[in-house]
């Protein structure tokens, strides 16, 4: 096989892996949009908040330590224990469920049947609040996240491809784990949405709040449930991205990577988020590999958004999104 084709194959595989990580972020947006018609601007911050909480619990960090110390003149920072990763993940999930309940009780139950733009603006406010709250609660220093996920080159793939192509492919172990987790997550979410009572209720709420209420579906329960599931997806995304770069406040910017994925895959389709992520991941990596050197590089963000714009022109609902027909 020609050398450039071998390299392109490696880039293609890494693009798929990167796409899975984008899709993980996009999934959270899709879930909430599907259930409530809300474009959740705070999804990136939720991933940040979940990851901050996870590290804080694992490290035995005292929440609001700086605030407590400033008010009471104490010097407490840590409880002095370390919590195992799995237990910390469960405890973080409990906090994300509590957050979902608070968000619904304090914000969205008061905005039932409001215009989508009102709900969107509320999520902007939520994003700013949550970012500041996370800062006060856990501090803004960069934290190393280690829940035991493998990281670094996969030696088996490296050796196997070396024997075949005389060039060992680089595939990150963390990306392989992310792919497996994302696949399991999508299967679970699709089964949940299509085949469970709560899932069907969620879709009914998405279609029409008032109609769903009129047939006895509890809007509050469904919204708390959906925000909890979105919180779980945010936690998974936060773990994957936080393991790569450390848990820090720029983690909230991963939402930028999800936008073109959503435009491509559609805002209402769970498989669409995955397919959109893969298309963007592979497309941007191959474009950078083939065209990047000719135009000075750094084409990835540009490519992702241009591709999304093209889709907006020709297929505004995305690949798998529902066509919205407004009757006047």
């Amino acid at each position: 096989m020609p050398e450039q084709l071998v390299f392109a194959t490696e880039v293609f595989l890494n693009g798929l892996m990167a796409g899975v990580l984008y899709a993980l972020v996009a999934l959270g947006f899709v879930l909430i949009f599907k259930a409530s018609g809300i474009f959740n601007y705070a999804q990136g911050v939720m991933a940040l908040f979940a990851a901050l909480t996870l590290v804080g619990i694992m490290e035995g960090q005292v929440p609001f330590a700086h605030l407590i110390n400033a008010i009471f003149g104490t010097e407490i920072h840590h409880f002095g224990w370390h919590v195992p990763g799995l237990v910390a993940i469960i405890l973080t999930m409990v906090i994300m469920v509590a957050l979902a309940w608070i968000v619904n009780t304090l914000i969205f139950r008061h905005l039932v049947n409001q215009e989508p733009i009102i709900l969107f603006m509320a999520t902007i406010g939520l994003a700013y609040f949550l970012e500041g709250f996370g800062d006060i609660m856990w501090g803004s220093d960069i934290k190393k996240l280690d829940v035991g996920l493998p990281q670094g080159i996969n030696l088996w793939i490296d050796e196997t491809t070396f024997n075949i192509f005389d060039y060992g492919f680089f595939i990150d172990n963390l990306d392989i784990v992310a792919t497996v987790v994302a696949a399991l997550l999508v299967v679970a979410l699709v089964i949940f949405a299509q085949y469970t009572k709560q899932g069907r209720a969620m879709r009914a709420v998405a279609d029409d709040h008032q109609a769903a209420l009129s047939v006895g579906i509890s809007l509050n329960f469904i919204w708390v449930m959906v925000w909890s599931v979105a919180g779980f997806v945010a936690l998974v995304a936060g773990i994957m991205w936080g393991t790569k770069s450390g848990v820090q406040f720029s983690l909230s910017l991963i939402a930028l990577k999800a936008l073109p994925v959503l435009m491509l895959g559609g805002f209402t389709s769970i498989p669409g988020a995955i397919v959109g992520g893969l298309v963007i991941g592979v497309g941007e990596k191959l474009f950078e590999f083939a065209i990047g050197p000719l135009v000075g590089g750094a084409t990835e963000n540009w490519f992702a958004y241009v591709l999304a714009l093209i889709f907006l022109v020709f297929r505004p609902q995305g690949l798998f999104g529902e066509k919205i027909i407004e009757r006047v």
Binding site: V11, N14, L253, K257
Partner: peptide, 14 residues
């Protein structure tokens, strides 16, 4: 070159 903010650099390091 790496695009802002730089969370994804797989192409460059490959």
């Amino acid at each position: 070159p790496v695009d802002h903010p730089g969370q994804e650099q797989k192409s460059q390091w490959l």
